[in-house]
């Protein structure tokens, strides 16, 4: 398992603070070049997991590797290949953006001064701070700090980029830039990023990890998550008297439930099925066989990430 194809592998990783279990037996395997969205409510363990991977905090149980290096014994080897943006990025306030990037670049690279300067200038341009490059950071806005944070995380062209809430302080333009950056980096970098902005996760992630109370409650491809976790649901919008058709549909062995709601004089059925093929072939025909109603809309239901996320959290809270 510990090959370059798997960038991050955790095995029963735990972190406790006195009586609080911040991370509980985390089993995770993140493949190369994937973009993984870390979701979860505040205090779910996202930041703690990130800090464990970076060696900023030590596990109280289990183990983990990044690029095959143990997170406790070989933390520096890991950090040579990682770029990290903290949730609340902190810098030396007296330094300028240019000085900060130069300082960070020298942790990774040696070489002629002009080559370092070129790398710094390119990064400043990429993050849109070229006009503020020589201003001390103490005068920066939150958004400018966030941009600088992203720049310093990317300056070493990392093999693994870890971003903790990268878009939280950015305006819509900045947020769009971050998402575009993530998509650009997909070819050469593995990305882990935690966020509360579910729309962003839905747009760029391959995999979604959902943590709740320190536990990994879901880790699956985004498509799988959006298709729901409680069977396939078909949605029908109906006009007219649908009581007979409803009884017909409900009697089918492949129908597990029908949820009926009314909206603007229309009836909406959410039909949960156990056999996808049977539903595709027969459901619409059965509904339309009763001449007293009209089917205005028929589609397989796709969940919004927020809906799926809330469902997963609710069910994990009830467990």
């Amino acid at each position: 398992m510990h090959t370059e194809a798997v960038v991050v592998h955790t095995d029963g990783l735990c972190k406790s603070y006195d009586t609080i279990n911040a991370v509980k037996s985390l089993d995770l395997s993140i493949k190369k070049n994937s973009i993984v969205g870390f979701l979860g409510p505040n205090g779910a363990g996202k930041t703690t997991t990130i800090k464990l991977l970076l060696g900023l905090t030590r596990p109280t149980g289990g183990s983990a590797t990044v690029f095959g290096h143990d997170i406790v014994k070989d933390s520096i080897e890991i950090r040579k290949r990682v770029g990290y943006l903290a949730q609340d990025p902190c810098f030396y306030e007296y330094m300028t953006a240019r000085e900060t990037l130069r300082f960070v670049a020298r942790f990774y690279f040696s070489g002629p001064q002009h080559a370092i300067e070129q790398r710094v200038t390119d990064t400043l341009t990429n993050i849109g701070l070229e006009h503020h490059a020589d201003r001390p950071i103490r005068g920066f806005s939150t958004g400018e700090r966030q941009r600088l944070g992203i720049g310093q995380a990317c300056i070493n062209s990392p093999d693994l980029l870890i971003l903790d809430e990268p878009a939280s302080s950015l305006d819509p333009m900045g947020r769009r830039d971050v998402l575009e950056l993530l998509l650009e980096l997909r070819q050469q970098t593995t990305v882990i990023y935690s966020t509360h902005i579910l729309d962003d996760v839905q747009r760029v992630s391959d995999m979604v990890a959902i943590l709740n109370r320190g536990q990994l409650v879901s880790f699956s491809p985004i498509e799988q998550l959006l298709s729901g976790n409680s069977g396939t649901v078909y949605s029908l919008v109906i006009k007219g008297d649908a009581s007979q058709a409803q009884a017909n549909v409900a009697s089918q062995p492949w129908v597990s439930s029908i949820e009926v709601t009314s909206e603007n004089g229309q009836t909406i059925w959410q039909v949960k099925v156990t056999d996808d093929k049977a539903a595709e072939e027969q459901l619409l025909t059965l509904a339309m066989s009763d001449g007293q109603m009209t089917v205005c809309e028929f589609k397989r239901k796709e969940y919004e990430l927020e809906e799926a996320f809330m469902q997963i959290l609710d069910s994990s809270d009830n467990d």
Partner: peptide
């Protein structure tokens, strides 16, 4: 991780890593 031509990846090991920069 790319080093961009003339730049070399740091070679220090152990406790010395980051020392010169700090």
């Amino acid at each position: 991780m790319t080093n961009g031509g003339e730049l070399q990846l740091i070679r220090e090991q152990g406790w010395r890593i980051g020392f010169v920069n700090l």
